[in-house]
């Protein structure tokens, strides 16, 4: 059931898989964050059509399961003549999906800002975009940092689905090792432990930040 020698042998591969998981998720998050800011400003726009567009993006990319989105990108783009590498498809999938969630998180953060601050900025003659980037976003970011970290955890977990489109991230690596060694339990457990280490550290960090902010506010 367990074979320590094989585990030690497979460990470098697992760690390489973990590295792939982490950087794919990080890229997905970074790109998703940009998408999130865009969608969030659509959603907060004064024009009804733009607001609806933002809303539609959010409900489509939150409503359709990530696995289906990944399959869509993976199978469809090549058929449209776009021959993209698997890792680009993976990052795109993660980014598009997390963009929808991040937009909602940011919107939540922006909506909690006191109206008075924006009014004060406007009276000082700051323009709309300046107000957004210099006053609203920095505060929204700080207020939503714990939620953002939580989103990172969710994204790292979601990235396991990339294995379905054949990319050798952590889950896929474990799958390969498990299949070739017939030590299914051992290698899946190893993958689970690695996920736990990363995600529980992130969760602890999120908790720490949350406490610090609460103290700062009190």
């Amino acid at each position: 059931m367990f074979d320590l020698a094989l585990l030690v042998q497979g460990l470098p591969l697992l760690l390489a898989g973990l590295w792939n998981t982490v950087w794919l998720s990080a890229c997905g998050l970074a790109l998703g964050f940009l998408i999130g800011i865009g969608v969030c400003s659509l959603k907060l726009s004064e024009r009804g059509a733009l607001r609806r567009l933002g809303g539609a993006y959010i409900s489509v990319f939150r409503g359709i399961p990530l696995l289906i989105q990944l399959l869509f990108i993976y199978y469809l783009l090549p058929r449209l003549g776009l021959d993209i590498p698997a890792w680009v498809a993976a990052i795109a999938g993660l980014a598009l999906c997390s963009g929808a969630y991040l937009a909602e998180i940011l919107r939540g953060g922006l909506l909690t800002l006191p109206v008075g601050q924006v009014e004060a900025a406007r009276l000082l003659g700051l323009r709309g975009r300046t107000i957004l980037t210099r006053i609203k976003l920095p505060q929204a970011l700080r207020a939503t940092l714990p939620a953002l970290l939580n989103e990172v955890i969710l994204l790292i977990k979601a990235s396991s689905l990339i294995s379905a489109v054949g990319l050798a991230e952590l889950t896929r690596t474990a799958q390969n090792l498990a299949a070739s060694s017939f030590l299914q339990l051992q290698f899946y457990l190893a993958a689970a432990v690695l996920y736990c280490i990363v995600n529980i550290s992130l969760a602890l960090l999120a908790g720490q930040l949350e406490r610090r902010f609460e103290k700062g506010r009190a």
């Binding site: 689905l161 889950t171 993958a191 996920y195």
Partner: peptide, 23 residues
Amino acid sequence: IEVIRATPFLVQLFLLYYGGPSL
């Protein structure tokens, strides 16, 4: 609870489906 929340659902499924028989 924390362990289940920290691991992907897919890995849990693999553990249960492929890892289960060894137990």
